[in-house]
Design a protein around this nucleic acid. Structure first.
Lengths: 242, 242
DNA sequence: TAGTGGTCTAGACCACCTG
DNA sequence: AGGTGGTCTAGACCACTAG
């Protein structure tokens, strides 16, 4: 049972993506849409505020709501904090392009002080350490290191890491949805090791993303660092006042 | 007249920053806070959802609300789409550190095709072109180029660009608040020209931020590109599901 | 079962914009 | 003045977590 406002948001988003409403168009008023979807204005507003946050519409007091210019690029957008589908690389891209993985490393090790503090576990606890190269249309575009508490997931099949979605596997195994993601993004340069994995020259710029992912129940299940080719990834950022 | 939920959000944020609630603490329930602030639960929830978006608390269904681990760093955080104070460099930092500017260029020129499309004006319209080096505690940390339609602001005093806040000046001149910000962030490298302005070696990584800023009435008043030293700036990114 | 957050209703009044 | 978004109330019921 999805929430009503989520349905409404997705329905209108789809209408925009299908060009039923075009860039700059005024869309129907809150009151009109509320009638059309058979909800109250409060519920409808929740949907519209989300659409605004996601950058699809602008709401202007006294005037109305308008379809926003959408940035389209031949690059991939990194998590912008408002997207629908921040849930892992394979989920994010699978509709548009061919995503694959090359497993470089899969080991069990002690967490150690820093990783333990991030995962909220003891530093002597075991974690899975996973390093993968991720490819889009067979071109290596990023490297991702993941640290997952063994207490949460006992075994991670190689097949999942090669072809499947790790996040989907975890949701299924734990029976909980992914709810929360918190990361820091910075710019850096590829060193020799990483460049070799990406089959590129050394010293190129990257976006480095490190952060934790939590489940619905508030438990941290993953600390990850990804190294993203700067020529392939950007971040879309939007902010709405007050 | 500020909205009630904004006041409540700020009040609780301050309490967290003042360590009245500590990391991991459970804060009072929605119903209890609603009574304390003399509002309905709906209003209180609006405040709490904002606090969650800004990364100060976590809400866990059936359990309660908890103070989040706050990332503290000796670097400056770039706009994360949820902060309170995305409104220009000087406003963002003025409480913590000494911020100053070095004016490199201030000219009037034709917009040209690309800038015009971003600002939603004619390509033959005039714009102010401003290049500034921004310093924190007298260390140059970023370069910012701004394009502002002359039709919106006729004259920009050099004093504002040297010491004041350009955004504050524009809000005062137009009588409108800044409402909307939309940008793309990418990683790149400093070239010779930019490196010279920052008095640093060439080829260092940067975060490049380009985007537009709008006022309450939906009018775009600024297209800007900033080049940020990667060792000084990061982006905090958080996402909450459903 | 009691307490928590998640969603939703049916109205009301306010603030802003345009003709 | 009439239409728009912005805020808020006073309830109600549902879904999840814990003891």
């Amino acid at each position: 049972m999805t929430a009503r406002y989520i349905d409404i948001k997705n329905s209108l988003k789809q209408a925009i993506l299908n060009k039923e409403y075009r860039v700059g168009d005024k869309i129907p008023s809150e009151r009109e849409l509320a009638v059309r979807f058979e909800v109250t204005r409060v519920t409808l507003q929740k949907a519209m505020h989300m659409l605004e946050q996601e950058g699809f519409i602008e709401r202007i007091h006294g005037k109305g709501m308008f379809v926003t210019k959408v940035i389209e690029d031949n690059v991939y957008l990194l998590n912008n904090g408002t997207s629908d589908s921040i849930l892992g690389f394979s989920r994010e891209f699978k509709d548009n392009v061919k995503v694959s993985s090359r497993l470089i490393s899969l080991k069990t090790r002690k967490a150690g002080e820093y990783i333990a503090s991030q995962l909220d576990i003891d530093e002597k606890d075991d974690v899975h350490y996973i390093r993968r190269v991720r490819l889009v249309d067979n071109i290596p575009v990023l490297i991702e290191d993941s640290y997952i508490p063994c207490a949460m997931i006992d075994i991670i099949p190689e097949s999942v890491l090669q072809n499947g979605s790790l996040y989907e596997y975890i949701e299924n195994k734990t029976g909980r949805k992914i709810k929360f993601y918190n990361s820091v993004i910075e710019a850096s340069l590829f060193d020799d090791t990483l460049s070799a994995l990406l089959e590129s020259e050394t010293g190129l710029p990257m976006l480095k993303v490190s952060g934790i992912t939590k489940l619905e129940d508030g438990k941290t299940f993953n600390y990850s660092i990804s190294y993203n080719r700067a020529d392939k990834f950007k971040i879309k950022n939007s902010w709405v006042g007050k």
